[in-house]
Computed example of a mutant assay.
Amino acid sequence: MQPIDIHRYAPLFVVMNAASGSQDSQAVRETVEREVHRAGRSVFFRMLEPGQDLSTVAARAVQQAVEHHGIIVAAGGDGTINAVAQAALGKDCAFGVLPQGTFNYFSRTHHIPADPVEAVRLLLNTREAYPVQVGLVNDKVFLVNASLGLYPELLEEREAAKQAHGRSRVVAMWAGLRTLLHRHRHLRLTLQMESGALGKRQQTIKTPTLFVGNNQLQLEQLGMPEAPRVSQGQLAAITVKPQPTWRMVWLGVKGLFGRLGEADEIVSFPLRDMVVQPLLPLGRRRIKVATDGEISWLTPPLRFSVASMPLNLICPTPAAFEQSQQQSTGT
C-alpha cells in the first residue's frame, strides 16, 4: 500500500492521557503548543480527565481530524496509543505518536523520537504517512501484542506495582517475576489455522498462556525467531508447555536476557489468521484478554488476524532514520 499525503498546514488533534508515563503532561503540552505555533500550525487537545472513557474521547478526536483533514495524535503509553489507533483504523487521516510510556515498543519500532520536541517536529515536517500493520483479536486492535492466561495476570500485577512504586522498567520486571512465582491455572485451547492447500488444521493445547505478537522489537528482545515475520505481514504466536513454578521463573529470566526462543518449553509459530476456542469453566461466557497492556473481557471464539487495512503512521523513512543515526554518531 502507498503512503498518504499530509497537507503542510494540517492541524493536529492530540489525545493526551495525563496518567500515562512518567513525564509531566503539562510540560509536554506546552512543548507541543510552542513548536506547533512556531510552525504556523494549529493544535487542539483532548485531555483525558478522571472518569472519562478513553475510547470515547479518542473517537471524537478522530472524527474532528477527519472533518478538518488533520492529523490525529496519541500522547501517552502503549495503552493510549492503542485506544487512538482503534478509533483511527480505517479512517482517512494520518496517525501520529508522542510517546510517554514505560517501554514505548510501538514508537521505538518505528523510530519515533522519545524526546517531545523531536517527536512533534517529526509530525510537523513529515509530508507522508506510511502504512503499518495492525493486529486484531475479534474487533480489538493490538499494535504490540494480545494475550490470554498468565500474561494478562502479569500485566495487572505490573500495573499495581507501578501504582505503588512508580513507573520504571525495573518495577515492571520485578512485578513480572513475582507473578511467575504464583501458581497459575492452565488453559485448554483449541487452535484452528489456515494451512495452505491443506485447508484448515486444528489442534488442542494445554498452556498457561497464549501470546500473539505484532511488534518486531519486543519479539527480538525476547529472542524469538519469528520476529522478522511481523515485518512480512504475519503475527507471531507463543505458547508455553505446562511447567512447574520454578521452571516458569527460569523461562521469565531467559526472556529478560533475550533467549526465550531457545527454550524447549516454548512453542512458537507465525500466523495470519487463527481462531482460538478456550474451554471455559461452567457458567462463564467470556475470557480475559490483554491488548497492548489494556485488559478487556471478550466472548469466544477469539480470532487473531492481521487487519485488512493498515494504520497510516507518521514516522521517519528508513533513509531518514539512517541519516539521523549517522549524524548522532558522527559517522
Rank of each mutant, 00 (worst) to 15 (best):
I6H: 11
A10T: 02
M16T: 06
N17K: 10
S22M: 10
V28K: 06
R29N: 03
E33Y: 12
V43R: 01
D53M: 15
V57P: 04
A61Q: 02
E67W: 15
G70N: 01
G76I: 06
G77W: 03
T80Y: 08
A94T: 04
G96C: 05
N104E: 02
S107L: 08
H110K: 08
P116H: 14
V117N: 02
R121N: 03
R121S: 09
L124S: 02
D139Y: 11
K140W: 11
N145V: 14
G149K: 03
E153N: 08
E156I: 11
E157C: 15
A164V: 05
H165Q: 05
M173F: 12
R185E: 07
L187S: 07
R188A: 08
L191H: 08
Q192N: 05
G199Q: 04
Q202K: 13
G213M: 00
Q216K: 14
L217G: 08
L222Y: 11
P225M: 13
P228Y: 15
Q232H: 15
L235D: 01
L235A: 00
A237P: 00
I238C: 10
V249N: 05
W250R: 09
R272H: 13
D273K: 14
G283E: 03
I295Q: 02
S296T: 12
R303S: 07
V306K: 04
V306E: 04
L311M: 07
C315K: 11
T317V: 10
A320Q: 04
Q323N: 11
Q325A: 13
T331Y: 14
T331Q: 12
